[in-house]
Nucleic acid binder design. Structure first.
Length: 842
RNA sequence: GCCCGGGUGGCGGAAUGGCAGACGCAAGGGACUUAAAAUCCCUCGACCGUAAGGUCGUGCGGGUUCGACUCCCGCCCCGGGCACCA
């Protein structure tokens, strides 16, 4: 054995060995004892930093641990390879996206290898290959057949920097684009959508099944779906005085507080409400209303919402409240959202703070219809709306009812009289999947002058991305100006036609890749139904919290849609989800903590660290840094500590190498041990117990590693040598071998090497995980803590079998204790066997 | 405003209602060395005390309990999600 820990040599040795052996090449024919361990596949951006590394190191440690526990582990890897960065780079440098993407994939693959992360590379997929996106397109067609993919003209989010539309999920709360950071604009465009709203209720309901998901993620999805129960109420337009008919005489609204409807004193439409121009045509208000609508349209969503200021204008029209036949004025207000509910709101200023503000500003009437049971409301003294529960008043025939009871009754009333009824509203919108960009899967649609919109026949898939395109910063998809791509014949009539030039959102690609791993090279079908049914749901999904809504919602939607298509027989893709915390680093400029990222300039790249300390050190430190689900601050000095530990482990085995090999035949026997080795033996098995528990629970690698370090400290304290007793040497050998096994998921290279040096055949991954010997845990004597009034005043060693009475006697007789209870009355003695005795005195 | 997290030494962090601060980092002192590196040993929450020992201490204020970092109530601060969603 080398005297000093030769990490460089052993790491390249074992990485080569794992490659040759196909360490995680998994035969999926049998799914006995299966464990599908999946890491979110990365976008091939070129280089990974140690922050990204956390994800793969955690995943690799889990996969290795589960393999040692005897599971048939499937752990594949692939590339979320379509995306804007590659295309933007192409515009800048002229390098085709395919070329740069595959270059990046090669780099990142070697980085993963250098980290010691092993995957079943035979299943590797890249979403940008025709072999993959053919099936993305096929799935699009299936969704289209079921009416789940449709095209419509809508006000959509336009990213002026990336020159494409975005889904709602890809716009941040402050109105900027999630990817580019640009201020998102609204544009009316004809776009492709997936009808995820059809699945809103199922996506919500099934969250309850996901008890292997962090509560946080579930609640984020719940918020995003935003279910709300309410009532639809149809108000009727009061006919115009000039006798002109209205296109639609009904204006429906959605409310969660139908109980307040007798307090409704006006109605408000969103500025974008369809048909406003007709409503006011020829009225004196026409010009000013149209001007107001135009103004509101110029303001972005943020500008409209920032200060809470509400602007509006009277239309000159009136509507009738169907509950009391009252005619109330119809307004337009910029605080009403056209995309939520019906785009019309019944305004109850007395019981809604927004309506209150608006009514006060424009001097509209306010009427109380819910009374505070505690103290009577008085409009003269109220300075805001009363939004609490109370008693319905002045609302015949519902007056006198508690308002919560009134809601269902009044809803039923609307239904019986045909002007509405209970409805459920969701915040979730349909998923906009069109992208006006090149580097994505083309949407397989053809537009024919005669036949209209025609889907590409399945036999013509894939619709290939052309390579002879020009990347110019024109703001238009290069596909549009590529004649060879655009011009086709209509599959229906054979006449001239053109292709859809939009490509799909890359989140479509990532919504089904975890099915594809099971049959990555199957060119006959998208997914292998039998294999998916056996191997999924994924047993452990590992990734970043940033995907809590986007990717995880879309993937759940796809799974349900694919279930409905009969492609799979389960409805949730990921049984257990683990979201690791971000790695942060203090900025040298301002001393603040930031997420590690290229744009913040605080990245730590693994290459240099691996060069000076080795991959095992980087892995060990990354796992030791803190609980993996929490954020953690990267600290270069801490890496040194991990390195020191591995060196120490190496040295210990190197220095006692012949002793260890020479003790092979010695077996630890509890009854023959002297106290020192007996204690180490117990500590060893306590460690196995604790580490196993830490890994089976929430992957608390940090405490598991701490335990390994403690065990190592205990080994050093015992200081076994050639002249030690046979039992001491036997315990020492077992401890060292077990230590190597225990550390192997975290630091696999050194573990493989030491395992071999200890006389075992590789790979250590095929060795079983250590088990606890209950006999080793046994204690004859236990240290008991003695407390007086909850304060520790002493400690004693007692026999493990001493009963409560005996413990109490021993405690009371103790000198230290006597000092504190002298002259006091003992009120109570609490004995917690195995732990402590507490004497309460006064 | 609503919904989730979180707040413990100089730092990262440990603690099934039962010894607060495991493990590691940093720091200080010492040994070895011509010297350095490496390694090893000791100290390391605050305060009082020569010491033995004692008092205080897990964001703040209450409560439950023999006993609370842990459970309950009310706040404060930090992070995240949702938000003019009717």
């Amino acid at each position: 054995m080398k005297e000093f820990y030769p990490f460089e040599e052993i790491e390249s040795k074992w990485q080569g060995y794992w490659d040759d052996q196909g360490l995680f090449a998994t035969d999926v024919k049998s799914a006995d004892n299966k464990y599908y361990c999946l890491m979110m596949f990365p976008y091939p951006s070129g280089t990974l930093h140690v922050g990204h590394g956390r994800n793969y190191i955690i995943g690799d440690a889990v996969a290795r641990y589960k393999k040692m526990r005897g599971f048939r582990v499937l752990t594949p890897m692939g590339w979320d390879a379509f995306g804007l960065p590659a295309e933007n780079a192409a515009i800048k440098t002229g390098t085709p996206p395919a070329e740069s993407t595959f270059n990046n994939i090669a780099i990142m693959k070697s980085q993963l290898r250098a980290w010691g992360c092993c995957y079943d590379w035979d299943r590797e997929i890249a979403s940008c290959t025709p072999e993959y996106y053919k099936w993305t397109q096929w799935l699009f067609l299936k969704l289209y057949e079921r009416g789940l993919a449709y095209k419509k003209e809508a006000a959509v989010n336009w990213d002026p920097v990336d020159q494409t539309v975005l889904a709602n999920e890809q716009v941040m709360p402050d109105g900027t684009a999630e990817r580019s950071g640009a201020k998102v604009e609204k544009k009316m465009l004809s776009q492709w959508f997936f009808k995820i709203t059809d699945y809103a209720q199922r996506l919500l309901d099934d969250l309850d099944q996901l008890d292997g998901w962090p509560e946080r993620v579930r609640s984020m999805q719940e918020n995003w779906i935003g279910r709300s129960e309410g009532t639809r109420v149809e108000f009727t337009l009061v006919p115009r005085t000039d006798g002109q008919p209205d296109a639609d005489s009904v204006i429906p609204c959605f409310t969660t507080r139908v109980d307040t409807i007798y307090g409704c004193t006006y109605m408000v439409l969103a500025p974008e409400y369809p048909g406003i121009a007709d409503l006011v045509k020829g009225l004196p208000q026409e010009a000013s209303v149209l001007e107001f609508v135009k103004e509101a349209g110029h303001l972005s969503a943020i500008e409209r919402t920032t200060d809470g200021d509400k602007n509006g204008i009277f239309t000159g029209r009136y509507v009738t409240n169907p509950y009391n036949q009252e005619q109330i004025p119809l307004w337009i207000g910029d605080y009403v959202l056209v995309e939520y509910g019906t785009g019309a709101v019944m305004a109850v200023p007395a019981h809604d703070t927004r309506d209150w503000t608006f009514a006060r500003k424009y001097d509209l009437p306010i009427r109380i219809s819910i009374q505070d049971p505690e103290q009577s409301l008085d409009l003269a003294t109220m300075d805001d709306a009363y939004t609490e529960d109370g008693i319905v008043v002045d609302s015949p025939p519902f007056s006198g009812m508690p308002n919560r009871e009134a809601i269902p009754q009044m809803g039923r009333h609307a239904q019986e009289h045909g002007f509405g009824g209970p409805v459920i509203q969701y915040r979730l919108r349909d998923w906009l999947i069109s992208r006006q960009r090149y580097w994505g899967a083309p949407i397989p649609m053809i537009y024919c002058e005669k036949c209209g919109m025609v889907p590409v026949p399945e036999s013509d898939l894939p619709v290939l991305l052309p390579e002879d395109v020009e990347f110019k910063p024109s703001g238009e998809s290069p596909l549009k100006s590529c004649a060879s791509f655009m011009n086709v014949t209509c599959p229906k009539c054979g006449g001239p036609a053109h292709r859809e030039s939009d490509t799909m959102d890359t989140f479509v690609d990532s919504s089904w890749y975890f099915f594809r791993y099971l049959s990555a090279s199957d060119d006959t079908q998208a997914v292998d139904t039998d294999l998916c049914n056996q191997w999924l749901p994924v047993d452990q999904y590992i990734g970043g919290i940033e995907h809590a809504i986007l990717h995880l919602m879309y993937a759940r939607f796809f799974t349900k849609a694919m279930y409905d298509l009969g492609l799979i027989n389960f409805t949730e893709p990921f049984a257990n989800l683990f979201t690791q915390g971000m790695i942060t680093k203090r900025s040298e400029k301002d001393g603040q903590l930031y997420k590690m990222s290229k744009s913040k300039g605080n990245v730590v790249s693994p290459e240099e660290l691996i060069k000076s300390y080795g991959a095992d050190t980087v892995r060990l430190y990354t796992l030791f840094i803190g609980p993996p689900e929490k954020e953690a601050e990267w600290n270069d000095a801490g890496v040194e500590g991990a390195y020191r530990f591995l060196r120490r482990l190496w040295r210990r085995i190197e220095q006692t190498h012949s002793l260890l090999l020479g003790s092979k035949e010695l077996k630890p026997v509890v009854d023959e041990m002297e106290t020192p080795e007996r204690n180490l033996y117990r500590k060893l098995h306590e460690s196995i117990q604790r580490i196993t528990r830490d890994l089976d629970g929430d992957f608390h690698f940090n405490t598991a590693i701490a335990q390994i370090m403690e065990l190592m400290n205990a080994v050093d304290d015992l200081g076994v040598t050639e002249s030690s007793s046979p039992q001491a040497r036997a315990v020492y050998r077992e401890t060292m071998e077990t230590l190597v096994l225990l550390i192997s998921p975290f630091a696999p290279h050194i573990a493989e090497e030491l395992w071999q040096e200890l006389g075992h055949a590789p790979s250590i991954l095929n060795a079983p995980w250590p088990t606890v010997n209950e006999a080793a845990l046994h204690r004859d004597e236990i240290e008991m803590v003695l407390q007086v009034n909850g304060k520790v005043r002493g400690r004693i060693l007692v026999g493990a079998t001493t009963d409560a009475v005996g413990l109490e006697q021993e405690a009371l007789a103790n000198k230290q204790v006597q000092k504190w209870i002298e002259g006091k009355t003992v009120r109570k003695v609490i004995v917690v066997p195995g732990r402590l005795v507490n004497i309460a005195v006064s």
